[in-house]
Structure formats: structure tokens, C-alpha cells
Design a protein around this nucleic acid. Structure first.
Lengths: 216, 216
DNA sequence: GCATAACTGCACTGGTGAGTGCACTTTAAC
DNA sequence: GTTAAAGTGCACTCACCAGTGCAGTTATGC
């Protein structure tokens, strides 16, 4: 329905990108098996042969799509984590970071990536490794590092396990969002995201904070 | 690999159950689309016609499998939640309940249910409703009710929102377990489950407890 | 014992989709 | 301008799979 990404037959170098975009759309909508290469080619405004010229076969195309989604997710998530600085009021900062992470998590592409991953994890077990290496692990590490710095500054008490604390902060966001978004089928209203993030930040600070609580 | 559930052609009434069992195995292994009705029939030691006699078509069979999985998950999870009583030491109790819930979450059938749900949620959006009505929502409610009772007894301070606290306790378990089990593809070692559960209970009690902390 | 309902085995249809072959056109490089 | 690479359109093969038809078998109710 969203039509071809290329304006008719114009440039040549961006066919590859057009195919990746269309492939994402179709895979996300129909899932790996139900997705047809014909539909992808049509969506990209490209001949089926061109798809095979660029990617070899359907599975390799799928892997490329997943890899691209992982890269994009990494960029967005790292930007969110970098909102956690050492200065500024803790509650506000944690809330801002949490909100940014929540937006990443709810992003259409992230939702699709999780869905495709879950669906194909048994038939293509290596996919998870790709996504973890290129995105998930790096975000976790970055978050843990930021929290560790706050602990070093005496503003958090993580019991010497920043990675565990990062894991929990993430869980306090993603768990509720997964449920409330109905596995990504429902757009969580702004107010509800706010509630999830504020509650997560509150719980996290009550558990790990060293400063007098900033009431909700 | 686990062979037919029925010992050759014996009883008749349990063919239905044999089909459901085999269908679970095949759907869980291959996913909805890649699963073949022939494979299911073979796995159940039954003619393909018998499958269609009992369930009409592949999609209805799939729904029955999902429903059955939800019912089983509900039973296991409720039993876990009911470990939360009003007497007894809080940390120990929360840890025991947490461990039981973690085991439910890591159970092969729960893993498969989540996987199938994620994979088919776009093509069969009503599936989520079935699972929520028959399992997820009820578990959440039961957990919230137990926590509310503990709050009423003055042993927790949930800020008057037991449902939010229940949501967070669940998230502190499922989030880390989801990641550490690699979406269910890896068996999480006992020691690691213990770490996740203890950390979750610790964080929860530091955030919501009213009694002096029981150190880890 | 017999009628009926459930089950079996096998062959079959119809549809769909991955991947290829081929003749032709367009673009980019020199 | 000519050449080579990339792209197009279409028809085609091959395989797989949901669902059906049918003739024959087995169990169950009475």
C-alpha cells in the first residue's frame, strides 16, 4: 500500500536499498514463510531477478534485513543510553533515558525485529547471535557502564554489579511495555508509557538510589 | 523423535489428544507455516483424515493447541503464585515464588507458546486475546491480589498500586530470563536462575519492603 | 452378530511460491 | 558511439502442501 520506494526507474545504486526496505515491509507484515519474493520485488518496484542478483536467495535477503534492523536499533538505543550523564537530577535523568529507551522499544522496526527473531529462532538459530553482537549486547554494556559511573560518583549503590542493575532497569521497561503493547500490536498511549517509565525509575531508585527519593 | 504417543492402534478416544500432542511438537519445532499436517498425523500415529475429522482444518487445530498450552500454563503459574502466603519470612517466600514462576517461564511449553504467539500475532490477532483471557491476565491478577494482601498486612508498601508492583515483579523475572535463555533456545543453568530470582526479589524488597532487608 | 461410526491408505487436485532461462532494454564507463 | 553490466518481463520448472475422494478396515453400540 505504501508503494515503491524508487520513483520509477531512476538511479541504479539505490535499488538495493529499495529492496531491503520493501523486504522489511513484507517480512514484517507476513512473516518469513508467508512473505513472497514476488511481493518484495513488486514493493521495491524491481524485477524479481534483481532481487536474486543482489541477495542470492530469500534466506540471505532475510538475514540482511535482520542485520540492518539490528544496526538501526543499536544506533537509536545508544543515543537513548547516552542521555544518562553524571550531572543533573537523578530521577529526571533516569526518566528521560527511560522514556527514550521505551520509544526505541516501541518503534515499529524494533517490534518487527523481535517478532521475526522469535518466529525464526528455531530454523535460523544464528540470527540471535547476529542481533546480540550488533545491538543487544552493546546496549546492555553501554547502559551498565553509565550506571557504573553513577555508582562510582556515589549517586547509586549497585552492590558492585552494574550489569545486573542495567539488566533490571531494562526489564522494568521492556516487560511492562511488551505486555501493554500486546506484543507490539497496540500503540501504547503516551500517558501509559509515562506511567511505565516513571514507575520503573521510581522502583529502580528506591532499590539502588543513595539520595533522598524524589516523590512521583 | 519422541515417536507416536499412542501404542499402535489401540484406544480410540485418545486419538484427539495424541493429535494435539503431536501438533504441539511439530508446530513448536517448525512454526505454523512450515508445519505440515502430514507430519502431525504421522507424529500422532494417525491418518491425515483423522486430523481433519477432529479439527476441521489446520488453523483450528493450531488454535486448539494454543488454547491447551494457555490452560496448562495457567495451572502451573497459579500454583506458583499460591506459594505467596501471608505468613513466613518475606524474602524466602518471594524467592520461592519467584523460582517457581521462573520455572514456569522456562518450561518448554511456555517457551513454545510465546514463540508461536509472536510469530502468528499479525495473521491471527485474536490469539493473544485467547491467551490473555485464559492465562496471562489471570496470573497477573492473582499475583497482584497476593501482594495486596501482604500490603494490607503492613509487610509491603505498594503505594496503593498492587497491579503495578505485580507487573514489575514479573518483569524483573521474565526480562532477565528471556535474555539469558536466548529467547528460549538455551537452558538457563540452575545457578543462573537462582541469581536472577534472588536479584529480582532483592530489588523488589528494597523498593517495596517495609521490613529491614534480609541480606543476599 | 450386525449396523454404524470412526479410522486407514493412497491417490489426487489445486494452488502457491522459490528459483531459473531467455530475449530484450536501459544505464554507465571509456 | 560502443561495450559491458545491470535491470526487465515473462514464461517456465519443480517442489511442497492443504484439503478431498474413495475403497476398504476396524472398533463400538445394541
Amino acid at each position: 500500500m505504501s508503494g515503491a520506494r524508487t520513483e520509477r526507474t531512476r538511479g541504479r545504486i539505490d535499488k538495493r536499498q529499495a529492496i531491503l526496505d520493501a523486504a522489511f515491509t513484507v517480512f514484517a507484515r507476513d512473516g518469513y514463510h508467508a512473505a513472497g519474493v514476488d511481493a518484495i520485488a513488486a514493493g521495491a518496484g524491481v524485477a524479481k531477478h534483481t532481487v536474486y542478483n543482489h541477495f542470492g536467495d530469500k534466506e540471505r535477503l532475510f538475514r540482511e534485513v535482520v542485520g540492518a534492523l539490528a544496526d538501526q536499533a543499536l544506533a537509536r538505543n545508544l543515543a537513548a543510553v547516552e542521555l544518562l550523564r553524571e550531572d543533573g537530577e537523578l530521577t529526571a535523568m533516569l526518566t528521560r533515558t527511560g522514556r527514550a529507551l521505551a520509544e526505541c522499544y516501541c518503534d515499529e522496526r524494533s517490534v518487527a525485529l523481535r517478532r521475526l527473531l522469535h518466529a525464526q529462532i528455531t530454523t535460523m538459530p544464528d540470527l540471535l547471535g547476529i542481533v546480540r553482537d550488533r545491538a543487544a549486547d552493546r546496549v546492555d554494556d553501554a547502559l551498565a557502564a553509565r550506571l557504573a559511573r553513577l555508582a562510582l560518583a556515589g549517586r547509586l549503590d549497585l552492590g558492585g554489579r552494574p550489569a545486573l542493575a542495567a539488566e533490571q532497569f531494562g526489564a522494568l521497561l521492556t516487560g511492562p511495555l511488551e505486555a501493554r503493547s500486546r506484543l507490539g500490536t497496540r500503540k501504547v498511549p503516551r500517558a501509559e508509557v509515562r506511567e511505565v517509565v516513571d514507575t520503573a525509575a521510581g522502583t529502580f531508585l528506591r532499590a539502588f538510589g543513595t539520595e533522598p527519593a524524589q516523590s512521583a
